[in-house]
């Protein structure tokens, strides 16, 4: 993030020259200076902001609609597991579908052969059609299992939404803290990236490879 000289209205008064901070050690030095210069008000304000940040680690802050940092880590790990399990289930179902489709092809081919015989043996045709019906029912059942495997999406999105709320809340309070310390950050739009950090698509990757003769 870009740092600017924007002054927060909540920032404590500073005497002397304008203080700029650009590194972590600068930040801590500024913090020390501010708390020493304003032992009562400055420290109280700082403690208040830090206390609100610390609440994000408090187990009691986990509710139906909110989470805290340790819980968020656990929730995101679960999301990884659940998406992986769901994908695995779908891949397994697709493999079973492929087998059933092969069986179905064999049965329908068999029905076609039986119908070409003269005289036609109705019992044999019916027996093959029953097998076809069984494989079709099996395919319907597997299609339903694919639908069921998508249940993870709802549960995962709830977990992710809680983590997003937590990050948003942390972002707000950290910005407050930085501004208080006269360490303001330039607002960055959601999803905005430095051009060098931006993801590229396949055609852009291909263009680069072409330069290397690939």
């Amino acid at each position: 993030m870009k740092r600017t000289k924007r002054k927060s209205p909540d920032a404590p008064p500073r005497s002397g020259s304008h203080t700029e901070v650009h590194t972590d050690s600068d930040l801590f030095a500024t913090l020390k200076k501010l708390t020493e210069a304003h032992p009562t008000g400055g420290m109280a304000r700082l403690k208040s902001i830090l206390a609100s940040l610390a609440r994000e680690f408090d187990p009691s802050s986990v509710t139906m609609t909110s989470t805290n940092i340790p819980d968020a880590v656990h929730k995101l790990s679960r999301v990884v597991d659940e998406t992986s399990e769901a994908t695995q289930r779908v891949l397994d179902v697709v493999e079973r579908q492929k087998k059933l489709l092969k069986e179905h092809d064999l049965h329908t081919a068999s029905v076609a052969r039986l119908l070409k015989r003269s005289p036609i043996d109705p019992d044999a045709v019916l027996a093959e059609l029953e097998k076809t019906s069984t494989t079709v029912n099996g395919l319907h059942s597997l299609a339903h299992q694919i639908v069921e495997a998508q249940e993870y999406q709802d549960l995962c999105s709830q977990k992710i939404e809680k983590v997003i709320r937590l990050l948003s809340s942390l972002d707000d309070r950290l910005r407050l803290l930085f501004e208080y310390l006269n360490y303001p950050l330039t607002p960055v739009s959601a999803g905005e990236k430095h051009p060098e950090d931006a993801d590229i698509d396949q055609s852009a990757a291909d263009d680069i490879l072409k330069r290397f003769g690939l």
Binding site: I200, A204, L209
Partner: peptide, 23 residues
């Protein structure tokens, strides 16, 4: 996550092709 720099690095290191997920 395909980044320009990564593709360059991979090409310099001798990659044969580069494919971006999902594919």
């Amino acid at each position: 996550e395909a980044k320009k720099e990564n593709v360059f690095e991979a090409a310099k290191a001798g990659v044969s092709q580069y494919i971006v997920k999902p594919f």
